[in-house]
Design a binder for these strands. Structure first.
Lengths: 344, 344
DNA sequence: CTGAAAGCGCTTACAG
DNA sequence: CTGAAAGCGCTTACAG
């Protein structure tokens, strides 16, 4: 007999009505107990909350969202997952958002598939805000969000449009830091291994590097064209570049994965010892960069601060705090390890 | 004037009512057009669907879910994200689910934090099914799901309870394959680097390895205790194990990341050349395993088949196809690379 | 401070 | 095959 009920648990979730009945109150009052700022007697609220946990009541956010127009969902749009930097960002950000009682709806886009389609279904859930973790995402996706009034927050990429928010490492400054450092070690002939050419991270890091070298009166880096941010791309680009330009003594790669690919290429394809025959630097400071077998000199992205800021901004946007469009650029830190050396 | 409307887009999303009015139909009819199996004139359906795309109408899944008790949300619970195997599973699975018009709600649990809390808020969205990607998750989380009638599907882990589903690589068989292969190469003294001792992947891989060695009349592997599946754990366990047991010639590690840590330890802490002084094997076949600098012999998990099966099962469970509890175990494949060699 | 009523955007018996 | 009505689980003016 009790079984009949148990079997149907799904259907029999406890609702406001149940809770109200138990307490002999109206559903209005019960509902109010769950909003910190609503007018209700303290004692009443306590009774409600207490009974709620007792019988396992939890407001249904779907029903709630229908009225309040706030789903407490944040959409997370992700693409380049082969870079270990992103899974880490994803999980840390998700944890923070969860702690603030938001839930993350994950969308994986794929250049080969229809991005807009994915975003369209995300939007049907009316997320309060969407954060884009995808360096390479077309701006149509963010246009679609804006069209239905959902604010967009870019992580590690500056949106091209005028109405979105971004938090990013100061990539251009990072490029400059690299130039400064390598020049300080006495290098004079530089290479740059590019990632995706249309990614703002790639463009900005390269620009800072190039600009600072110029300011220092050094010759411009020899640059590869760049295709992706994958290990394989780093390996192949570096092999080709180094074979053609034997005089390069310092290689800056658009990110750590590329740099690790480049390390392997330099060692295996050209027989270089690192850092004796070649200095290599990356960008990100992913976990692997500090493994003893890599020990990669790199620019560390200020991940914690970036996550903090993103969480803060996302929550603000969800609350519709009408902040102005803003771009937060946080400086990175040069981490010196064992893939670079002075040649003075 | 039009501006006033534009500014409020969020509030003015187009609803069934709008669409019905445009078409001069009832909302009932309009609604029916969106369900393939409902009784409606073909021509009517076409008119509705066409007009819908025209004015940009999309049924609100939140409102829909309130009635149908089906949110088209699948919860994805994730914990060990330092293993590159998981991000890949996550994204591929998410893509497949999206293609089937489901959306993924991501929950990141953390042993140090309250798992149940995270799952509780996930459940408040009434997911149709939750898949657990977390090898290490306590079974309380899945109990919480079952309590509210939400089916649970384990990926790469066999749930301990009687009412859940699982798809996993045949880990025990994998362990046996490793034993068979290493024995065939003439090895006689083995080590095993354990991961999280309570993870079923760890336990099963070790058991298969141990059992098969015994069957072959070889001595039992010398095992480490195991703590986590992190690189650092592999490095330290291997360093300690190899220093104490100089006669070990073949090392099986519970997964690839551990194996890569072990490789680094063997080379740096003991000056071993691999595979000359030591054969090393992992499990998973993550991307990094095929990098030239690693070229790790390993057991490849049948990822595509696992994802296929998981998608299929998840969709079935969401549809409440009353399948029996089932555990799908797919065999892995031994990938021979350059970290193992014959010592005959 | 509390309750009765209306309504969020949808779907689904129930009539016709 | 289509429409009017009720209702999913909640919140929020509006009275009191």
């Amino acid at each position: 007999m009790t079984n009949a009920v148990d079997k149907n648990d799904q259907a029999n979730r406890v609702t406001v009505r149940d809770l109200a009945r138990e307490l002999g109150m109206s559903t209005s009052t019960v509902s109010r107990a769950f909003y910190g700022d609503s007018i209700i007697a303290t004692e009443t609220r306590e009774r409600v909350l207490q009974k709620a946990t007792e019988i396992g009541y939890q407001p249904n956010p779907l029903a709630r969202g229908l009225i309040t127009k706030s789903s407490r969902i944040v959409g997370l749009v992700v693409s380049d997952i082969t870079n270990p930097f992103y899974p880490e960002v994803m999980t840390r950000l998700t944890e923070r958002l969860q702690a603030a009682d938001f839930n993350v709806m994950l969308v994986v886009t794929n250049p080969s598939r229809n991005e807009e389609e994915s975003v369209r279904v995300l939007l049907s859930y009316h997320p309060d805000v969407v954060v884009m973790l995808a360096t390479t995402l077309s701006s149509e996706a963010s246009a679609a969000c804006r069209k239905v009034g959902v604010p967009v927050l870019f992580f590690n990429r500056v949106g091209s449009d005028e109405t979105s928010y971004a938090v990013t490492c100061d990539n251009e400054l990072g490029g400059r830091q690299v130039a400064e450092y390598l020049a300080g070690l006495g290098h004079e002939c530089f290479g740059f291994i590019a990632g995706r050419p249309d990614a703002s991270t790639n463009v900005d890091r390269c620009k800072g590097f190039r600009d600072r070298l110029k300011e220092l009166g050094l010759s411009a880096p020899i640059e590869t064209n760049g295709t992706t941010f994958f290990y394989e791309a780093g390996y192949e680009s570096a092999a080709a570049l180094l074979k053609k330009n034997r005089n390069i003594t310092a290689l800056f790669c658009a990110n750590d994965i590329l740099a690790i690919g480049a390390m392997d290429a330099a060692q295996r394809e050209l027989g270089f010892r690192i850092p004796n025959d070649l200095s290599i630097m990356g960008f990100d400071d992913i976990g692997m960069a500090s493994w003893p077998s890599r020990s990669l000199t790199t620019i560390r992205q200020p991940l914690s601060e970036m996550i903090d800021k993103t969480t803060e901004l996302a929550l603000g946007l969800a609350r519709k705090d009408g902040a102005e469009r803003m771009v937060v650029r946080l400086p990175g830190e040069l981490i010196e390890r064992n893939t670079t050396r002075s040649i003075k």
